[in-house]
Simulated assay, not measured.
Amino acid sequence: MTKQIGIVGVSPEGASLCYQQLFRHAAVMLEPHMHPVVCVHNIPLAQYVEAVRRDDWMQVAALMRNSAEKLASIGAEFCFTPDNAVQHAVQLAEASCPIPWLKMTSAVAAKIEEDNRKTIGVIGTKYVTSGSAYQTDLGMKGIKLVRPSEEDTEMLNRIIFDELVFGIVRKESQLKMLDVISRFGDKGCEGVILGCSEAPLMITADNCDLPLYNASDIMAEQAIRFAMAD
């Protein structure tokens, strides 16, 4: 019997994509149709955005813990969030939480280390690309993180918040994101982290030359493995 999984949703679009990713991994790793029980809880994205913009990580953690407690109350045995921007608050959210958390940045760093990559780019909102969550986990493994330029960071932030979180995919924006990734290759990057759970709506292995580390998908696979473990 697998453990029940709880997803702490932040961006509805990102959480729904991760929900699908969980079941795709389950279909490969478990017996047919024997996927784990999965429950999702989300608080309005606006509350997270307001707290992150104030740099109030205690409030971000409180919102995440609120969701985790509700998930635990209906049977979730562990939880995670596929949202990249709030990974900085996972350890704070786990304090006094009734169920354990899995941390996505740690899972991504482990996968990159497994592939023996030494230099990696990252795309995401400015809270991801300018934050320390990925840099810390990668740095502890001797992996160099390359960030977008300031101009590219603002452009990515605009595309994500104005388009992707609403499920909007514009060809012009897709080409801009691919151009950022191409420049990572010019800087010696051996791959790029999709540090935005909605990024796969625009960026896939079919249209990108660099190896991709889809953070949400990596987290979904780890969640299935954790659910299967004794």
Rank of each mutant, 00 (worst) to 15 (best):
V108G: 05
Q59R: 15
A68Q: 06
E69Y: 04
R24S: 14
K171P: 09
M34D: 12
L145H: 00
A199D: 04
M29N: 11
H35Y: 07
G121S: 11
M58D: 15
L45T: 12
C79F: 06
M29D: 12
L92K: 07
A27L: 08
I168N: 08
S149R: 01
K176F: 09
C18E: 05
M140R: 14
S16N: 12
M29Q: 15
N207K: 00
A229M: 12
P44F: 08
V38D: 03
M219D: 08
Q59I: 11
I74A: 10
G139S: 14
C189K: 04
H35Q: 11
G14C: 03
T105G: 03
H33G: 00
Y213R: 02
A199T: 04
A107Y: 01
I43E: 08
R158H: 15
P44W: 07
I74Y: 04
T105W: 03
L71I: 08
Y134K: 06
C39S: 13
E151K: 13
R158L: 11
V165F: 02
R117C: 13
G185M: 00
C39L: 10
A15Y: 04
K141D: 06
Q21G: 08
K103M: 13
E154H: 13
M140D: 12
A220S: 07
L138G: 06
Q4C: 08
R183C: 03
V122K: 06
L30A: 13
D56M: 04
E198G: 02
L17R: 08
A27S: 15
A61P: 10
Y19H: 12
D152P: 10
N42R: 09
S11P: 01
K126N: 14
A26V: 10
V90E: 01
S182D: 15
Q174L: 08
V37N: 07
V52D: 06
Q91I: 12
F78H: 06
A229D: 14
Q222Y: 10
A72C: 10
D209S: 15
I7R: 00
M64E: 01
S96P: 00
E69T: 08
G121H: 02
K118T: 12
P100Q: 04
I224N: 03
E31P: 10
S73L: 00
H41T: 11
P98Y: 05
H25P: 06
A93K: 05
F161V: 10
Y134R: 03
V180S: 01
G75P: 07
S67F: 02
T136D: 11
H41Q: 13
S67Y: 06
M219R: 06
T105K: 04
L164K: 02
Y134F: 15
P36E: 01
I74F: 09
T2A: 12
F161T: 12
L164S: 10
I168Q: 04
N157F: 08
M64Q: 08
V37H: 09
A229F: 05
Y134V: 09
R53T: 12
L63E: 02
M202A: 13
W101P: 07
G188Q: 07
P82V: 06
G9R: 01
I43G: 04
M155G: 09
T105A: 09
I168R: 06
G139I: 11
Q87M: 08
S11R: 01
D206Q: 09
A109R: 05
D186V: 00
Q135P: 00
G9A: 04
A133S: 15
L210Y: 03
Q20L: 12
V90W: 04
R225L: 13
K141P: 10
R117G: 00
